[in-house]
Design a protein around this nucleic acid. Structure first.
Lengths: 217, 217
DNA sequence: CCAATTTGGAAACGATCGTTCCCTTTTTCG
DNA sequence: CGAAAAAGGGAACGATCGTTTCCAAATTGG
């Protein structure tokens, strides 16, 4: 992953995102953008958008607040860049997890186990940036709303494809409607993030997965 | 509902929550506490905690900011009182909905339809105060965390009881584990609120319920 | 080597926020 | 009727926040 895919409109100048060669004019950036965004992701996940101050961000990213404004237009731009990176990494993780020769049904089980793991304990309490953005910002910020909707739609498509592949290889009954089941699975997994953020003791993974998999029976 | 059940520690003085008789000493309150809390609930649901200013609250509750502090210790106390009322009303609504002579399975369907309705359109975009609190506040505020956990636990018990009643009247198979299915239903319903807040077009109610009911098959 | 350009960083600014203060109004108690 | 008590309301306060400004440092182009 040599070149980040953060939308370049969000970044102040146009540094290091054109062709990789030929350094631009002035003083080079002293920090790694992707690492910095990872720190920002962490802070935004834990505290949300409004409760995260520029000072919090600067401290987490080990940057002076003035320097932050050299790299980003404003706080919202930091958030959107962090969101885009979070969504991209999450999508890649999901696709890699499901990219195996196993039957569709078994891969769906593994994806559910992945969600359970991410909704548990400390990681669960950190929360999901997509869920947090949907709750805190989607109503009043069309840019965030569009991004959240795109993530949910992508997840739904991911589940639907997994189910259809299961139907092809015979591990999932052909009778069920992939789209409807996928919608239910999106609700189930997003709900797991909510419950995990609340810090409720997680259910036993095996029996929870067994129950959830009934949605594909 | 003559007497509100808002925890009296949250309210500044101890007005109108002891015995209903014998007015206390000073000038009587000019506004209705429950009505005011309903307005506060609305604002907190739409904007969340941090993004709601005292000015927003005062305007919505048709109160001067100074008067607000006569009735509540601080902003957090307003929120907690609003949360408690929201949770109480929600629980009552759910219990009333399920208090019919119909078989358990059918009542579970109706509860799911109720959640779909509340996750749709404008009402869906207003969002659920429990979900919002879990995401925005539960990590850093133990008081909120306890309340959110209690709501989730109550919902889980509600679903589990409904399932057990269905198993008694023969409408739900005895084979399934009520606790595990209830946990999945909690995730599913909380997830519906997240998706609804994001403003995604809702699924067809009938087929969604049919799929969700597989959790109790 | 000097001008141009860009970043790093600290200090400063204006706006907003939660809260308090103070004065008036309305009520009860003696 | 006067004192005490509590609420209504607006002005004021201190803190914090997002953002801008300014200067030093680093790099490239000519």
């Amino acid at each position: 992953m040599p070149v980040s895919s953060v939308a370049s409109e969000l970044l102040r100048p146009h540094r290091s995102y054109g062709r990789p060669q030929r350094r631009p004019r002035g003083r080079p950036r002293a920090f790694d953008m992707d690492e910095a965004l990872d720190k920002a992701i962490r802070v935004f996940r834990e505290r949300g958008y409004k409760a995260t101050s520029i000072g919090d961000l600067a401290e987490a990213m080990t940057l002076a607040s003035g320097s932050l404004y050299k790299a980003f237009r404003d706080k919202r731009a930091v958030f959107l860049a962090a969101f885009d990176r979070y969504a991209e990494l999450g999508a890649k993780q999901l696709l890699r997890l499901a990219d195996t020769p196993k039957p569709g049904r078994e891969r769906l089980c593994e994806v559910l186990a992945f969600y359970i793991e991410n909704s548990r304990g400390l990681e669960g309490k950190r929360g999901c940036l997509v869920v947090g953005s949907a709750i805190e910002l989607a109503i009043h910020d069309p840019g965030v709303a569009a991004r959240v909707k795109a993530c949910l739609a992508r997840n739904e498509t991911f589940f639907a494809n997994l189910i259809r592949e299961g139907q092809s290889d015979g591990s999932i009954p052909k009778r069920i409607d992939a789209e409807t089941a996928a919608r239910a699975l999106v609700c189930l997994t997003q709900g797991m993030r909510v419950v995990g953020k609340a810090g409720r003791p997680p259910p036993d993974a095996a029996s929870f997965i067994e129950t959830a998999m009934k949605l594909a029976n």
